[in-house]
Nucleic acid binder design. Structure first.
Lengths: 244, 244
DNA sequence: GCAAAAGTGTTTGGTATACACCCATGT
DNA sequence: ACATGGGTGTATACCAAACACTTTTGC
């Protein structure tokens, strides 16, 4: 450790030290959307990346990110940055992890506080796309700048883990949806098929969704009920933390 | 938002911006130990706090913390700081959350990356104690500096949640232990009694612990088997992240 | 009528809980 | 002997998965 050891009195809470540190602070976001590929009902997880226009890693793909300005919270910084780089407004936004290895950015010390976000397909369609912003399939990423491959892996793990015990799947869908659509979201994320009958019972018993009374017509089969997300049901989720 | 909006090209990944931001970066740690209170087998969660010797919140109790130096990782910074302020070496150390509300430190913008740690009783006994470092019962804390009460609440929630599906209880114990001791750790953390018979079966089926073959004599009853933590068993835990 | 998906019912196996009961040691 | 916790056995309840079956639409 290069740092000289502090005496106890010296190293008491730092929040009083007004010296800005030599460590740069940034916010990045892993954004997930579910997009149907081709024709079959199968959908796949996709995420937008931006091309770096400076060294290091100039020309390579990276997570959208930016600096934190002094007068905005972390989640706000993530949301603002997200909007300005990709044009996206997330339905769901949560802190993922703070990455701070000393060697993650060549020549410079950067600590990145990474968020992960879910967006709906209609929002994703409206997103900026161009030479410097492009969507990739989450399981077919190129080699990314910095430690961003690791970060995406971790975000994917969190998404999949959380899908099993929480109810975030609706963040990929519109206001109303059928149980089949909701199930297909689960199937696409978890990468396995689910029994429609059991899935229905799980959703009903969890009270995560409520029927709207309407049905979706137009399919060449029995018209399914439309459901809406149940906002009043409690999330057994983030513990004491409400925001984020 | 006081910050002017970035143009897309402008706000691409920041890791290249060498300007140090106006935001201070710190590391703090919530340290838990299990200490038997009085005589009964009952133990309670306790944590060490340090007294602030500067404004803001001078004289109030706060979590141990300090700045991040340029050439050490986040977990290393937490560990070093922990050692220098309290003399403790944790058995378990994990990142909790990055706290960065704009108003959490009066007059200054501080982002704190908070870790949580578990220490064994023998380590806890060796810890520095004095006018500026004192142990408190986790459920009888005074009003702390900054948002540290919130942070401790969140750490407690994480500890309790994780205790139910992971195997971190052994971090509170020595090299070998009886199942009764391990069960008492669970009971103290979860604040409810557990059936000894069922607890035994859960531990056996999870293969989290292995019998050493030895027994603990000296009690005025049948000598219980001693167990050791099973390092080779997988933790279904932090996903792709290995360190921390 | 037939295909296709919605929706219901039933069986089954695993797992958590409660609790009765025996075992081995110190006093 | 008896008190105390160690350790085993077992009945019950609950829950998730598997799958057979009925319903309702479009063609």
């Amino acid at each position: 450790m290069a740092h000289s050891e502090h005496r106890s009195d010296d190293a008491l809470p730092v929040e009083s030290t007004p010296t800005t540190s030599a460590v740069a602070l940034a916010v990045s976001t892993v954004i997930f959307a579910l997009r149907s590929d081709g024709e079959g009902g199968g959908a796949s997880l996709r995420l937008p990346l931006v091309r770096r226009i400076r060294e290091p890693f100039e020309g390579e793909w990276a997570l959208p990110g930016g600096p934190i300005s002094a007068h905005e919270g972390l989640a706000a910084a993530a949301g603002r940055n997200l909007l300005s780089t990709t044009g996206l407004t997330p339905t769901y936004l949560e802190q993922l992890y703070a990455f701070g290895d000393t060697d993650r950015s060549p020549g410079e010390r950067v600590v990145s506080i990474v968020y992960w976000a879910l967006v709906r397909p209609d929002q994703a369609d409206r997103a900026t796309v161009g030479d410097n912003v492009r969507w990739f399939a989450a399981d077919e990423l190129p080699r990314l700048a910095f430690d961003h491959n690791e970060i995406v892996d971790y975000a994917l793990w969190r998404l999949r883990t959380k899908m099993e015990y929480s109810r975030i799947a609706h963040a990929f869908l519109g206001e109303t949806f059928t149980l089949a659509e909701l199930r297909q979201v689960h199937e696409a994320v978890l990468q396995r098929e689910l029994d429609p009958a059991n899935f229905r019972r799980q959703m009903e018993s969890s009270h995560a969704v409520v029927p709207t009374g309407e049905r979706l017509t137009g399919g060449r089969h029995r018209p399914p009920r439309l459901y809406r997300y149940n906002d009043s049901a409690p999330l057994i989720d983030n513990g004491p933390l409400t925001s984020a």
